[in-house]
Amino acid sequence: MNQVEHGFTNPQLMFKSVFFKPFISKLLSAITLCTMLINPSYANDDVDANLGANVDANVKNLSANSAVASELEDIKSQVIKLNRDLFILEEDLLFPASTQVAVFVSVDVGRFFTLDSVELKINSDNVAGFLYTERQRRALEKGGIQKVYMGNLKTGQHQLTAIFTGADAEGRPVQRAVNHEFEKSDETVMLELKLEDNASSYRADVKVEEWVL
């Protein structure tokens, strides 16, 4: 380990660039060469003699590391696949399409309403509630759609009530609510609650969109 390498691995330095790793790997090899010439500790004959052996050892280590990395990747991918399979199995088992109803939340822009929480009622029964963290709110504002509720309903007419709590552009607490009648058929019902900024009224409105599968 030479001094320059030490500098690069200092935990204070937090490289965030995508190019950090490839850049560093090439950079280090070049720096090592430069450092050998200036660091008195490397200025003996042993360095040249050991260099060849070190390269061989490095090649071996690299291939061993690559095998471990490959094995780890394989395990990771298996775990992710398992996770997905169990998720689908759970959903198939608990929420068959014939009874499934799902409610989503999305935010368009979010200038006039800073989302804090949402409460959901179906046929006057409280079915879900969600309190947003800063990061989750930002995820919605960046365009993410959150599945806030999934449940089972009989076929027929139902009523969904959603109450959004948050703050307006001036930071005053504010609530927005919406009622929506929908019919549950044999197919999955997916309802999106869209919190949209209304530029003309300088306030946010809640709209409900039923997804067409």
Partner: peptide, 19 residues
């Protein structure tokens, strides 16, 4: 509809849950 499905995944990504 596909875009909405994609945005669901996007929500998890922005939330930091990459898995």
């Amino acid at each position: 509809f596909r875009n909405k499905l994609y945005r669901q995944a996007l929500y998890y990504y922005f939330e930091g849950d990459y898995n």
